[in-house]
Design a protein around this nucleic acid. Structure first.
Ligand SMILES: [Mn+2]
Ligand SMILES: [Mn+2]
Ligand SMILES: [Zn+2]
Ligand SMILES: [Zn+2]
Lengths: 142, 142
DNA sequence: AAAATATTTAAACTAATTATAAATATTAAG
DNA sequence: CTTAATATTTATAATTAGTTTAAATATTTT
């Protein structure tokens, strides 16, 4: 049973066949597709279709919303029209997007996290959520 | 002549009556409406209509796109469906959004800027753009 | 097994944005 | 100036991502 399926049990989310498939697809996304991943709804649907060819896009939308609300996956709105998804990770991480290749590089930085808290506090706010996205181009070393 | 109008001249963007109005509306947004601002297209259109009641929403969309591509204004995609806009500022700044009131607090933080550059570099990238959004709730002190 | 409840499907709908085509305005030639 | 060429605006149609609806299926409870 995948990590996500376990979480569904935990959160009391009923696991239908379709949801299992979507859970698997999103679970696999990290391992199978590497750092470039973070698939959008169409891509998730395409991959789900390989397992069950009659799964509906409406179900993918509904399930993803359910999973997001249950904290099972994270939605990202990078600089495009459509949202992209990834399984919730233990540790919060941020993203650097390669503006040339579209590759997404993940990173964790304790210093940034602390600094963000400090800034919020200084402004008189308790930090509830935050988003940091870096856009860059590869430095070629020779 | 507003700051934005000057920039249009600079960038060789022709200034029609409608564009002047939109330029004025977005120029004024900062001063007149304070930190809560960063209007969306509908709001820009509404304000433009007060000056010329037959200005079309299509023109607002087109003009805003033009202004954005010319670096005259900045588009933000906060956690909503629609984009919001503000005049390009001298100094890059970031936003803290009050999750209760919707108020937007702007801040500049040199430390964050430096840190972001350092992170990008460490990952082998040259930083081209970045986005930092904090979401928080007001701390009440008594 | 039957009734009640939840989920899926396919299709209709919504909201934001973009594209199109005719009308209007601006600029460039003659 | 006048006319032709070019650009912009308007109104409207089309597109896109995402949500809602109603009937069909599936699951759970009695
Ligand atoms: Mn974090
Ligand atoms: Mn900056
Ligand atoms: Zn990620
Ligand atoms: Zn701002």
């Amino acid at each position: 049973m995948s990590k996500i399926e376990e979480k569904c049990k935990e959160k009391g989310v009923r696991l239908t066949d379709q949801r299992k498939i979507i859970a698997k697809v999103i679970s696999d996304s990290k391992q199978t597709f590497g750092s470039k991943d973070h698939p959008d709804v169409d891509e998730l649907h395409k991959r789900a279709t390989l397992i069950d060819k009659k799964i509906s896009i409406a179900t993918v939308y509904r399930t993803i919303k359910l999973f997001e609300e249950s904290g099972i996956l994270i939605r990202h709105d990078f600089k495009e029209g459509k949202s992209r998804y990834e399984p919730t990770t233990e540790e919060h991480h941020n993203h650097l997007i390669d503006i040339n290749s579209g590759e997404i590089v993940e990173f964790v930085d304790k210093e940034v996290e602390e600094l963000q808290n400090k800034i919020a506090q200084k402004l008189g706010y308790k930090l509830v959520d935050h988003k940091l996205e870096l856009y860059g181009s590869k430095i070629k070393k020779n």
